[in-house]
């Protein structure tokens, strides 16, 4: 196919197709600060301004089918710097939401599916999770002045309930120690749920509102069932 064949007749596009999206995308003055700010601009020809522009022109399908919305890390720098207050992160998420679920890039799709099914992105069984937490607690207890450190799982009426990022019970278990030790030193009354403890919510990244709601609902349920007073939801 030659370049000319690929030419799109602009006035055949439905420019109104995304006009109901309330993200101010039509107000772009193409200043480019979003693309300059973006840490992943240039990867596979992606830049945020391009996506904003495509949506403004009504090139919805092409945006949904492209890899670009999935290159974005959703860090939000583009949106924070946009002089026209265009909600660029929301646009990216909206485009992601329009992709068929089984077309969502592998790891996100699989992780979310697993989380919905098993309560965490890793599919880690309850026993293994508890074993890891207790193992970490024992390691802390070996350190001077933390001799009586323990982790209390599913404790009722605790002051703080904390969720866990799956990475912390997988490859980064040492990172759990820092804040647990702070809890201990502060004499904090805290607990961790034994199931549905996943702190990440990949519904955010795949644009799946339903999944997001379900994952959040689980945390809300914990708060109610365990009667915890405060929620610490690190992500």
């Amino acid at each position: 196919m030659t370049e000319a064949d690929k030419r799109v007749n602009l006035d055949q596009l439905d420019h109104d197709s995304c006009r109901s999206w309330d993200y101010s995308q039509d107000f772009c003055v193409t200043c480019g600060i979003c693309s300059s700010m973006c840490p992943v601009s240039g990867i596979d020809d992606f830049d945020p301004r391009k996506l904003v522009r495509m949506i403004s022109l009504g090139m919805e399908n092409e945006a949904v089918d492209s890899r670009w919305p999935w290159i974005c890390t959703m860090c939000g720098k583009c949106e924070a710097s946009c002089p026209m207050e265009i909600k660029i992160s929301s646009i990216v998420r909206k485009i992601r939401s329009l992709r068929e679920r089984d077309e969502v890039p592998g790891i996100l799709h699989k992780g979310l599916e697993t989380a919905l099914k098993t309560g965490n992105n890793l599919g880690l069984p309850k026993e293994d999770f508890e074993f890891i937490l207790e193992d970490v607690a024992e390691e802390i207890a070996e350190e001077p002045s933390f001799e009586n450190f323990t982790v209390e799982i599913d404790k009722k009426g605790a002051n703080i309930l904390t969720t866990i990022h799956n990475k912390l019970v997988n490859t980064h278990t040492d990172d759990l120690k820092h804040w647990w030790k702070i809890f201990h030193a502060a004499g904090e009354d805290w607990t961790v749920p034994s199931e549905n403890w996943e702190g990440t919510n990949w519904g955010l990244f795949t644009g799946d509102d339903e999944a997001m709601k379900k994952m959040s609902g689980r945390i809300v349920d914990h708060m109610k069932n365990l009667g915890a007073k405060n929620l610490l939801w690190p992500e």
């Binding site: 000319a4 007749n9 391009k50 522009r53």
Partner: peptide, 16 residues
């Protein structure tokens, strides 16, 4: 009118 859009890098035509 035929042109390349500088933002999307797409080749467009317009027949107004």
């Amino acid at each position: 009118i035929e042109f390349t859009d500088e933002v999307t890098k797409k080749n467009f035509s317009l027949t107004p």
